[in-house]
Write a protein that binds this DNA or RNA. Structure first.
Lengths: 138, 138
DNA sequence: AATAATAGTTAGTCAGGCTAAGTTAGACTA
DNA sequence: TAGTCTAACTTAGCCTGACTAACTATTATT
């Protein structure tokens, strides 16, 4: 298979997977964007700028996202002692619990989907994941 | 790797791929949703209800999407001769051309990304694609 | 013939993206 | 060290795209 053919097939399957994810996300207690932001905070406090870059959005967009997560107490803002311009954001206990719950729901959905495949198919996906992870990080 | 671990890794990588696709879509002449809808029409006319289900959205959402595609003449609505309640939607020549152009842009972006991988990594993705295609179709 | 169900549309609301412009704090320079 | 530039956020205003509720028109059912 040429790289071009592969790109074409991958394009088609990515579109399919996007539609799949949309169906998974429908009706969950946190939107997929909010879930993604909470996931970025799991390792500890982050600056607004870092978060915006990681999610590929502009800073004002992240400000609004964090506002919406802060209001119900899922995250908290704090000041950076070294630089008064910088605001850091971190998970609250509540936010950590919410993140865990949503992750369980997503993973269990995918687990059910994967269970319908053959062991060989699962293995093929497992082998391909590191390569997929490299895409777009060049 | 257990199915559960695989689900977790896949969940993470799908999130990554979604962000990748967003970056591809930025600055293109149609949004990624519009592209997805145009793609669904490639095989011929579809009913509104079918389109909404396939895209995991409610019918009113699809109505608005189709309105936006109809206004610049990319798709056309028609009546179903067998059932006067049903409206079908099909690509116009313009819409087909637009779809082809956007697809070329996507494919060439992905081709460039894939070219940065090793042949083994590309092969791993090629092998996994049929399995990914089965996800969500159960 | 009356009623229920189906297919779409319209109207109103909200999330989430953008750019432009404002505020505050740190960095540089003359 | 005063003045200016840059950086980090926030606010405001606009657009797309999602939802539900309510409406119209048509078909199916009883």
């Amino acid at each position: 298979m040429t790289t071009d053919d592969l790109a074409e097939s991958l394009s088609r399957e990515l579109r399919h997977l996007v539609l799949l994810l949309r169906r998974v996300a429908a009706g969950q207690p946190v939107t997929s964007q909010q879930y993604a932001v909470l996931g970025s905070l799991e390792g500890g406090p982050r600056r607004m700028t870092e978060l915006a870059e990681e999610h590929g959005v502009q800073l004002p967009t992240m400000t609004v996202q964090i506002n919406r997560l802060e209001e119900p107490g899922l995250v908290a803002r704090a000041a950076d002692p070294a630089d008064a311009r910088v605001r850091t954001v971190e998970l609250t206990g509540e936010g950590r619990a919410r993140l865990a719950a949503v992750r369980r729901a997503r993973v269990s959905y995918l687990t059910a989907q994967l269970a319908a495949l053959t062991p060989q198919e699962r293995e093929a996906i497992a082998v391909a994941l590191p390569a997929l992870a490299k895409l777009g990080r060049t």
